[in-house]
Structures are given as structure tokens and as C-alpha cells.
């Protein structure tokens, strides 16, 4: 039993760490806020969940559920956070329009008569304006 659990941990820890690293790499390499969000929301969440499951395999029985609970929270909250960030990013020019193949939302907003400002120019730093 212990060997089995150790194997689970030995597989899940490196895999989780690898996804953590790839998520961080995506955060740096991707060109605009919106695609960085993909790295933050998915690779990162998957990495954390794998690590947590791996850790819970090593924990005494009564503490393992709490770790799985953290994983569950993360699974539920990560999409919500990323949706809100995506929504804000879309409206604050966090989107490089040169990368886009099509933008159905811009078409919709234009038809509604509430288009956003000019094409995706990245706004200079918010904090630097002060």
C-alpha cells in the first residue's frame, strides 16, 4: 500500500511541478494578457491539482481530504477568476488584435453601438501614470 502511494506521489509531483513551470513559462512567453491567462488558468491549475493529489497520498488519512478540498476549491475558482480577468482584459486593451483570427465580440459590440476604443494598443503601465 505504501509502495503504491509512494509511486503515485513520485509520478504526480514531477508532473505537477512541470506544469507549474510550463505555466510560468507561458506567463512570460505569451504575447498578450489574454493568452497569458490561458497559461495561468490551465497549466497552473493542473500543476497545483496534481501536486495536491500527490501530497495527499503521503498524508495520514484524516488530513488527506483537506488537501483534496483545496484542489477542489482551486478547480472551481480558477475558471471564475480567469473569466473576470478576461472580461476586464478585453475592455482594457489587454488583447493584441494582430493575433486574432476573428473577433465576434467586437462585431457584436459594434452592432450594439458601443464599440471599444481604438485597435489594441497596449496601454502603458497603470501604476506609472501616477
Amino acid at each position: 500500500m505504501s509502495v503504491l502511494l509512494d509511486t503515485v506521489t513520485a509520478v504526480l509531483f514531477p508532473a505537477g511541478a512541470a506544469f507549474c513551470f510550463l505555466g510560468a513559462l507561458g506567463l512570460v512567453r505569451f504575447p498578450d494578457t489574454m493568452s497569458r491567462l490561458h497559461a495561468a488558468a490551465k497549466a497552473q491549475t493542473l500543476g497545483l491539482v496534481l501536486v495536491l493529489v500527490g501530497a495527499s497520498a503521503q498524508m495520514p488519512g484524516r488530513h488527506a481530504p483537506a488537501l483534496l478540498l483545496v484542489a477542489l476549491f482551486q478547480l472551481f475558482t480558477a475558471p471564475i477568476t480567469s473569466q473576470i480577468i478576461a472580461r476586464t482584459a478585453y475592455r482594457t486593451h489587454g488583447l493584441d488584435r494582430n493575433l486574432l483570427l476573428g473577433d465576434a465580440l467586437a462585431d457584436r459590440l459594434a452592432r450594439d453601438g458601443t464599440p471599444l476604443g481604438g485597435p489594441g494598443r497596449a496601454r502603458p503601465d497603470e501604476d506609472a501614470e501616477r
Binding site: L27, A40, Q44, G94, D125
Partner: peptide, 30 residues
């Protein structure tokens, strides 16, 4: 950065990594 949103996202990811690292630490030290 360059946007404040990027920083929020990076902070969120950092917290996620803190959680992961702490979990590994707990497992290592029982």
C-alpha cells in the same frame, strides 16, 4: 507588467505556487 491585470494574474499564480510548495513541504516533513 505591462498592465496591472498582468500583475494581478502573476500574483495569483505566485500564491498558487506557494500552495503547491507548502503541500510538497508538508508531505516531505510529515
Amino acid at each position: 507588467g505591462p498592465l496591472a491585470l498582468d500583475r494581478i494574474m502573476a500574483l495569483d499564480v505566485l500564491v498558487t505556487m506557494t500552495i503547491a510548495a507548502t503541500a510538497v513541504g508538508s508531505a516531505a516533513r510529515d
